[in-house]
Amino acid sequence: MDTILGPLYYAVSWIIVQFHSFYSLVFDRNSGAAWGLSIVSLVVLIRICLIPLFVKQIKATRNMQALQPKMKAIQERYKSDKQRQSEEMMKLYKETGTNPLSSCLPILAQSPFFISLYQVLNHIAQGKVVGVIDKPLLESARQAHIFGAPLSVKFMDSASKVESLGATLTDVRVVTVIMIVLMSLSQFYTQRQLMTKNVDLTVKTPFMQQQKMLMYVFPIMFAVFGINFPVGVLVYWLTTNVWTMGQQMFVIRRNPTPGSLAFEQRQERLRAKGKLKEDPAQVEAKKAAEAARASRQQPKRQTKSQRQTGGQPSAGEQAAEQQKQDESSKPKPAGGSSRSAKSGQRKGGPQRPKHPSKK
């Protein structure tokens, strides 16, 4: 490992020493502030250099989003044949030039630097010269503490080793536990934000399953392996997690994936500010739909017989309805109601002759 990554040891140690020389102008050269800020600056420098890979990651995510309908069609067509489904997915990736693993490129690119920093700090903990860190710098780095914990110690180190560096085991474990928890939470929030705001959750694809798995796997990995990381490496990884979280929040807000929740929220913000010009055809279609909805009449309530005959009234109901219409169309006689007119006719009109009684 030392033979393969030897050049990186020199590169990483040289960068740290240069930043340490700069921060020593402000802080004590043996302080945790000078060495800790040197590691943070190393992370920032690496992440700036990785911005082109991050842009490539965004493009890969967009390509994956554009392929969602085709992926869904393949899933529906071969839902009973998982092997054929995987073959068709890989064929689609090859035809469109899309790599579903592109989202892992920044992490993969950082791995050599992460391993190199881990080894540099291990050499410092063991009192060994590494890269461009000579004896005076080695002693200075061993004296550097962050919140009472030396940069080169781990959670699992013995009390005697910790005390030899001028610290207590309690301080070391409290600091490492807090940093491991912060690392895990920041990683989980970053992945969860990606899953809930910047992807279309209506379509399930292998890419989606991969992202969902990483959301739970990475925090567990940090929690398990973090106890074996030196404090300086925890500083490195916590810084890169915070950088990733902020970078992703910026991208999701300013350039979200089309069709995602973040995209709809951005459209609403632009619409509220008057910066979003809608398509005239869409506006006319929306107005027509609203007009049709407003003019739509509610169906009349039907009787039981109408429901049984498919909405047509029965013969008896038709006759009753016709009789009501005839009565309502007759003119009412003057001077009283129809009942009084009939009674007056019986009193004043001609009467029937009585039959003569039999003698």
Rank of each mutant, 00 (worst) to 15 (best):
P356D: 12
A292H: 07
L45P: 10
E278V: 00
L261V: 12
Q193H: 11
V40Y: 07
A288S: 08
L234M: 14
G166K: 02
C49M: 14
S343Q: 15
D28Y: 02
I220T: 14
Y189D: 04
K332M: 09
K286N: 05
L234S: 07
A320S: 04
R192M: 09
V153W: 06
K72F: 08
E76V: 01
I51L: 15
R253F: 04
Q247C: 04
E76Y: 04
V120M: 12
S31I: 01
Q187L: 09
R301P: 03
I180M: 14
W243C: 02
S340T: 12
Y189W: 12
G36N: 02
S102Q: 12
A34L: 05
Q306V: 07
I220V: 14
Y93Q: 00
V55Y: 15
S38E: 07
P256Q: 04
N198V: 04
C104F: 15
V120A: 02
P112S: 14
E317W: 09
Q267C: 08
S31W: 06
R254M: 11
P313Q: 02
I74P: 00
K59E: 13
K273Y: 03
K358F: 05
Q209R: 11
T196D: 11
D157T: 07
P333A: 11
F22Y: 12
S184Q: 05
G274K: 07
K354Y: 05
I115N: 10
Q323C: 03
E290L: 11
